[in-house]
Design a protein around this nucleic acid. Structure first.
Lengths: 321, 321
DNA sequence: TGAGGGGTTGCAACCGGTTGCGCAACCGGT
DNA sequence: ACCGGTTGCGCAACCGGTTGCAACCCCTCA
């Protein structure tokens, strides 16, 4: 392996000058920079990240904390964050933590102390725990808003409200919302947004709380049918999938008799192009979060602002009613 | 942050002794070890991985190379490898590379030179390219066998053969195999295994090659119907899913008229508990591969052996014929 | 002509562990 | 009492970059 010393020797300068020429060219005379660069190129020099990190006192590792990976919502976030981290030469370590209570915190601290920063996906649990987690270092929050913390949220609530409003517009008189897990920040947002959107134009039944699973959707079927709803907005894709399968199994056609909104890709999978769908770009969510963390790391200042990403709604041409 | 020097000072020994006491206690007097350990505990000492890696000349990073992440087959492998890597205090970096041709190699080399070792998931591409990739450092292969290389393979071929044989046993006279992508090592194994298993007990039609996508399954429908097959074994889950949906869309009941084998979880999703299914434990695949790599890294010797993981077959109680 | 100052560069001390080598103490054996 | 052979420990030199500080050159302005 060729080291910086080799490059410096070939270029006829000191190691320190070589280091500066490559890292902060503005501090070095232009032709010296050129000479060093040429030498580096000629030797195929690749700086040793480990040494660099040691000298700078950083680890070069950032953590992404998710509550679970058994959920299609989180994996794209991981992918997006991963790819963005790589662009900034950071290693991403993915950790599974719920951050629900104080016990989670002690384990989290050990992790946080070993990395340069954290991206937290903590959909549930009290604000206090999440805030406490943020004291260990630079932190960016995903899909949740807490006063004073930098966060990136998908504006799913607006999309849900849009869906519900259109259902009401297209003649649905009874709409059901299948609520998400207890304590979920997004659930609170979505539930409130839908209620505002529907107002008194239709009867809105809120069911739940449900965990974001296929089984929960199946289990919700009785209640949905009993509610008399002709349009359903489920908190999560998996819940909707379970509901659709269970409805079909008992002979209720969907989207014929009961329309269930879905996510874009799933709408295709369940063979219903005519289902209203939303498109949350999880990868972008992860990418933007990592971008925010990188900014925070380089600038050193935490603006504590929220970036709200739009969520698109696909409404079928043919009326789903 | 407390450093080794602090610990050494508190324990009243030299830094070097402290280092050895913690890392190789067999070289140090028992009571000295105890004193150092106590000091470390008291100060809450956490060794700095970066410094350790620099001194040892390793990076502490291992790479997992997959051809794509848009495929449900690979994500569990990533998860398994990830979790196993963490147990050995290794950072996992996931890279997307096909390793199909020499161009991929140059980019791969840059990656490989920065890590301690690689786990390669390279289902396609010529053996030579994969072998060339292995020269840059310790390497473990997943789901593919190449003479002389350590590899972990799921014994899917046997499972496929089992499926085909049982189809023949239960009266199917025309069976179709939907082949995988061109050049796929596993496809070659599976195809051959099925042919051996069916022998002359039924008519076997091999279709393809197909990419492992939903769309490919849809596109294969005409050919499947034309073949007169009553039982189909698709190379990949996604192909099977596409086929089932397309069959149903054109009024052919499945598994009623044409049985399509599937993977365990998918069999449930398509609402057919009575479908023969296989269960490949991708997470275990990734985990075992990482275990092999860790062994290789610590022992320094590459045995070049293959570990074959069993794949279970679920045959429905009620005959699917 | 000399003091003041900006731009370049080199020296050497870091960052925090790891490890080769040498010294000293201590062992049992003659 | 003397000796070869452990055993236990410390010194200092690493690993490969980064950076504070000082030296130096050259140019400007008084």
């Amino acid at each position: 392996m060729t080291t910086l010393a080799d490059v410096a020797a070939l270029a006829g300068v000191a190691k320190s000058t070589a280091s500066r020429a490559l890292g902060r060219p503005d501090l070095v005379a232009p032709d010296t920079v050129a000479r060093v660069r040429a030498a580096a190129l000629q030797l195929g020099f690749v700086p040793n990240r480990t040494a660099s990190h040691l000298a700078r006192g950083s680890s070069g590792i950032v953590a992404l904390v998710v509550p679970t990976l058994d959920n299609a919502f989180f994996t794209p976030i991981v992918a997006g964050a991963q790819s963005r981290a790589r662009e900034s030469d950071l290693q991403l370590t993915v950790a599974v933590h719920r951050l629900d209570d104080a016990d989670d915190l002690v384990e989290f601290e050990r992790l946080a102390r070993q990395v340069d920063g954290c991206v937290l996906v903590a959909p549930r649990g009290p604000d206090e725990i999440v805030q406490a987690a943020a004291v260990f270092g630079p932190t960016v929050l995903v899909d949740r808003e807490i006063q004073g913390m930098t966060s990136i949220v998908a504006d799913t609530a607006s999309a849900f409200a849009d869906l519900a409003a259109r259902f009401a517009d297209t003649g649905h008189r009874a709409i059901a919302y299948l609520g998400g897990p207890e304590g979920s920040w997004q659930d609170a947002q979505r539930s409130a947004a839908i209620a505002r959107a529907v107002a008194d134009r239709a009867q809105l039944t809120t069911l739940g709380p449900f965990p974001a699973t296929f089984a929960a959707g199946v289990a919700a079927t009785d209640a949905v049918v009993a509610s008399g709803a002709t349009a359903v907005v489920p908190y999560a894709t998996s819940i909707g999938l379970g509901l659709v399968f269970a409805l079909r199994a008992r002979g209720v056609s969907s989207p014929g008799e009961i329309v269930v909104s879905a996510e874009r890709l799933v709408a295709e999978a369940i063979g219903a192009d005519e289902v209203p769908a939303i498109d949350v770009d999880g990868e972008q969510l992860g990418r933007e979060a990592m971008t925010a963390l990188v900014d925070l790391l380089t600038s050193g200042v935490d603006a504590g602002e929220t970036l709200r990403l739009p969520v698109s709604v696909h409404w079928p041409e043919s009326s789903p009613v």
